[in-house]
Simulated scan of single mutants.
Amino acid sequence: MAVFTEVSDKAAKALLKRVPLGDFVSLRGIEGGIENTNYFLTTSEGEYVLTLFERLRADQLPFYLYLMKHLAQAGIPVPDPQAESKTGDILLQVEGKPAAIVNKLRGKSQLAPQVAHCQSLGGMLARMHLAGQDFPRQQPNLRGLPWWNETVPVVLPHLEQPAAELLTSELAYQNHIAASSAYTALPRGPVHADLFRDNAMFDGDEMTGIFDFYFAGVDTLLFDIAVVMNDWCIDLATGVIDQARADALLAAYQAVRPFTAPERQLLPAMLRAGALRFWISRLWDFYLPREASMLKPHDPTHFERVLRARLASPFVLNTPAAIK
């Protein structure tokens, strides 16, 4: 959510003539993130988020936008894309870039989640997965295994030998897992695939929203769970899983959507996969950066630590509350 493309007040006012959300009040760039340009757009009717898509093509965007619309209509608290009055389109164009306006969610991010937050998240994640089962559009996770296989050779020359060896061996392991019958049997559907602490909102212990769906795609539901656990349920300094938070998240999830046998079997492998995916993408962003006025690349060594922690101590579903 760095600012790659500057949007003037004049351009924002012109946009509000096409998408009638009240009179223009202010436009403010949002810091953080590395994929899109984001602004808080305040009007006489409320607060919205204007996103200009910097890497995604216009033909890729309907999946994300209509997935959010689908989930919002199913009662999941996600940003609801706003449409042009004349055309009904929710995919817009601003400053020559594909764009969207969504409502701003209430609450605030919980960057130090406790057991209660993880419990709330687990139930909401399961509801979201179930609500997505009848979403008709299809698009693969664009940062899935094929992208890992393409990107690892690009970042390998930048790494010292121990990290390069780990990256290469883990990629081989994930290719092996993906070819297994257990992996083929995993339940699939639309997943968020990037549900970190800063992509959710809370009011106290209550989860009030999930946003930033622009890495979403059809993948295994277990991969989504693994991505969440690797951020919400760990000690950030070491990457080690906090058992109490993990158990709370999994218990709340399975109370809504019980885990299948292949999911129970492959959770340790998917936790490794989730760590690998974000290690690769952070290496790519760190060593092959783009210009942006608020760009702050994330530290890639964080997810190297997370992956090493998953290897050193595979997660065990060891409480009756966590699974059925």
Rank of each mutant, 00 (worst) to 15 (best):
F4L: 05
E6D: 05
E6G: 00
A14E: 12
L16E: 09
V19S: 02
L21V: 00
G22Q: 04
V25Y: 00
V25E: 02
R28C: 04
I34P: 00
N36E: 04
N36P: 09
G46H: 03
T51Y: 04
F53N: 01
E54C: 10
L56E: 06
D59M: 09
D59N: 08
D59C: 07
Q60M: 12
P62M: 12
K69A: 14
L71F: 05
Q73T: 12
Q73W: 07
V78S: 06
P79R: 07
P81F: 13
Q82K: 13
A83N: 10
A83S: 15
G88K: 14
G96R: 08
P98I: 13
V102T: 15
N103Q: 09
G107K: 12
A116F: 10
A116D: 15
G122K: 00
G123Y: 02
R127W: 06
H129S: 07
H129R: 05
G132M: 05
G132R: 03
D134W: 10
R143L: 14
W147L: 11
T151V: 09
T151A: 12
P157E: 14
L159C: 14
Q161H: 13
A163T: 10
A163K: 10
Q174P: 11
I177M: 14
S181D: 15
T184W: 03
P190F: 08
F196S: 07
A200L: 05
F211S: 06
D212P: 01
F215K: 01
A216N: 00
G217Y: 10
V218M: 12
V218Q: 13
F223L: 12
D224P: 04
V228M: 11
V228D: 03
M229T: 07
D235M: 04
A237V: 08
T238M: 11
G239Y: 07
V240F: 06
I241A: 05
D242T: 09
A248M: 13
L250A: 07
P258T: 13
T260A: 05
P262W: 02
L266Q: 06
A269R: 15
A269Y: 10
G274P: 08
L276R: 03
F278S: 00
F278I: 00
W279S: 03
I280Y: 02
R282D: 01
L283C: 13
D285Y: 09
F286R: 12
P289A: 15
R290M: 11
P297A: 02
P297E: 00
D299W: 00
T301N: 11
L307S: 09
A309N: 00
A309G: 03
S313F: 02
P314I: 01
V316Q: 01
I323Q: 00
K324C: 08
